[in-house]
C-alpha cells in the first residue's frame, strides 16, 4: 500500500515512527549504534500494526529464537531495520520491537553461552581421549 494511503487511513503516529527509524539508521551508519523501539508503548491498534508490517515488508532474512518461548525476527525491506516479536511458552505475544542494527543484538551468540559451550565441548573431547 502506498505510504500516503496508510497515513491517511490511520490515526496512529506512523509518520513520526518512520522518521525515528530513519534517524536511527543514520545513527547506525555514523556511529554503529543500535536502536530499539518498543512498539508496546505506542498507541497502535492491531490494524495499525498490520499496516505497518505491510508497509515495512519482509526482506531477505528471517530467523527464530527458541528461548523462554519462540521469538521471530525478520529484516524488513529496509536493510538494517528488523522486526522482532517475542512470544512466551504459551505462544502469546509478549513484546514487539523494531531494532535498527546490522544484526539484532539478541541474535548474536552471547559471550556467556560461548564460554559455557566451549567448556562443554572441551569436556566432550576429554571424554573421547
Amino acid at each position: 500500500m502506498h505510504i500516503n494511503q496508510i497515513l491517511n487511513h490511520s490515526n496512529a503516529p506512523i509518520a513520526p515512527l518512520l522518521n525515528e527509524i530513519c534517524h536511527a539508521l543514520e545513527k547506525l551508519l555514523l556511529y554503529h549504534e543500535n536502536t530499539l523501539i518498543d512498539l508496546h508503548s505506542l498507541p497502535f491498534s492491531p490494524h495499525d500494526i498490520t499496516q505497518l508490517v505491510e508497509f515495512l515488508g519482509k526482506g531477505e532474512v528471517e530467523a527464530y529464537l527458541y528461548a523462554l518461548g519462540k521469538s521471530i525476527f525478520w529484516e524488513t525491506n529496509f536493510a538494517g531495520v528488523w522486526w522482532i516479536e517475542h512470544y512466551n511458552s504459551e505462544e502469546s505475544l509478549i513484546n514487539r520491537t523494531i531494532e535498527i542494527a546490522y544484526c539484532p543484538s539478541i541474535l548474536q551468540a552471547q559471550t556467556e553461552d560461548i564460554q559455557l559451550g566451549k567448556q562443554q565441548l572441551q569436556q566432550l573431547i576429554k571424554s573421547f581421549q
Partner: peptide, 25 residues
C-alpha cells in the same frame, strides 16, 4: 537451562513491561 539469550529476552520484555526505555536493559 535458560541461555543468556533467553535471559536477555527476559530483560527486554521486563523493560517493556516496566515501561522503561530499551536503553535500561
Amino acid at each position: 537451562g535458560i541461555s543468556r539469550r533467553g535471559f536477555l529476552k527476559f530483560c527486554a520484555t521486563t523493560a517493556s513491561l516496566l515501561a522503561l526505555p530499551p536503553a535500561m536493559i
